[in-house]
Simulated scan of single mutants.
Amino acid sequence: MTTAPHAARPDTTSPSSTAPERTAPGIAALDAVERTSLLTAALRAIESGRADHLYQDPYAAALAGETGLGLLAEVRAATFPAAGARTVPSTPDYNAIRTRFFDDYLQAAAADPATTQIVLAPAGMDSRAWRFDWPSRVRWFELDRPAVLAYKEQQLAGTAPRVDHRSLAVDLTAPDWEDRLLAAGYDPSVPSTWLLEGLLYYLPEADTHRILRRVAAISAPGSRIAADLVNTDALTAPQMTALLAVFADWGCPWLFGSDEPEALFGSFGYTAEAVQPGEPGADFGRWPDPVPPRGERGVRRVFFVHGRRN
């Protein structure tokens, strides 16, 4: 994927929040991968402060904390070097588009009268259960590691989700998370909607396949799934070196990509479609770079994948 040579730096408006930031002793318990959820929250906080924001997340600043803003500063420095043109994707624009894309996706799914359960895995610092109204028939499940959910609960103390919300402290690589989900009220006999956001590129290929297989196994026909994914060139392209080095230095390198996301999800029983940021339905007037045709080789790509269980 080529990059516009004179793309502007992102808006640096200070993040806004409905409440002052709380002290966050729980941050110390988060490992490298878990801390990336604070980066996502920081990006959402900054986006919420922009005049041209694609969404508003009033909880993001408190969830990000100073740690999240520090991580964002490192990503910004790699993305927008002081000398030379940007070569990596604009992380602020990408995250804004991704959040809005999946906002719209989940709301469209929830508008279907057959939708009674939505699962975020992992949940990270996501606040959609708090910032949107959801139909009363929907059960909302959030799965993530114990330290992540403990920190999130601490930061959102005193606020209530606007949905029947069930939080499960589980590791998606553990052998029993399905049993925990069933015990929390998940019904595998009726269609569900799953969102795997900000996850798959941190996992080895075998773990990615294992998670998709396990999700498919407890998803009834007609269930929805959505995820973001990079291609294999995004893991090795010289133009990505600066950004990849940041994540590697944090201890959470990118490990997995797929050049054929539709086929990947198809192998687990889904009919899927993949769209790239900047294409119709995944642009919102914010993607700053050209979008290479799918047939072009040797370019980095990002995909938003969404599909239904056969």
Rank of each mutant, 00 (worst) to 15 (best):
A78R: 00
A111F: 00
P20I: 01
W130H: 15
F102W: 09
G281W: 07
L235P: 04
M125N: 01
A226V: 13
H306Q: 13
L235G: 00
L43A: 10
I46W: 06
R9V: 11
A169P: 03
A227D: 09
R224W: 08
V190P: 00
A73P: 03
S16K: 11
P161G: 10
V119F: 05
P15N: 07
W194I: 09
S223Q: 10
G266Y: 11
R86Y: 05
G68R: 01
G158C: 10
G68D: 01
L38I: 10
Q239I: 14
E296K: 13
L182N: 01
W140Q: 02
L63K: 03
R86D: 01
A77E: 14
R145M: 09
A217S: 14
A150D: 10
P135F: 13
S258E: 08
F101N: 00
P81G: 05
A62T: 12
A227H: 09
R128Y: 06
G222Y: 07
P5N: 07
E205T: 15
A114R: 14
R308S: 11
T18S: 13
G84F: 05
P238H: 05
Y202D: 13
Q56L: 11
T116C: 00
D31N: 04
L172F: 07
G49L: 12
T18Q: 10
L54Y: 06
D31L: 03
V75G: 00
T13H: 15
I97G: 00
T36V: 09
G295F: 01
V75W: 01
V148T: 09
Y270L: 11
E47L: 11
I218L: 10
W130D: 11
G269P: 09
A42S: 10
A150T: 03
S17H: 01
L69T: 04
R308G: 06
R50V: 11
Y202P: 09
Y59Q: 08
G285I: 06
R139Y: 00
G158W: 10
T36M: 01
E262Y: 07
V190K: 04
L149C: 08
V75D: 02
D31F: 01
M125G: 05
A82H: 08
A28V: 14
L229P: 00
P15T: 03
E74S: 12
F102Y: 12
D176H: 12
A237G: 03
G298F: 11
Q56R: 15
A184G: 08
P122A: 08
A96G: 13
D144S: 08
S48F: 02
A32G: 04
A109K: 01
A32H: 04
L72N: 03
A206G: 12
L106T: 07
T91S: 01
R294L: 14
R98S: 11
R100A: 01
P113G: 07
R301T: 05
A51T: 11
G269T: 08
P92K: 00
S267Y: 10
A226S: 14
L71I: 04
T232N: 08
A160Y: 05
D179A: 15
S189H: 14
I118A: 04
R76P: 00
E205H: 14
S127N: 07
D126K: 04
L229F: 03
A174K: 10
E21L: 12
D103L: 06
A29E: 14
D52T: 13
G68E: 02
V291E: 02
A19T: 11
R131C: 13
P221H: 05
L244S: 07
L120Y: 05
A234W: 02
D57M: 09
T87V: 12
T159C: 12
A110V: 08
A248V: 04
F80I: 05
T208C: 15
G68Y: 00
D179W: 02
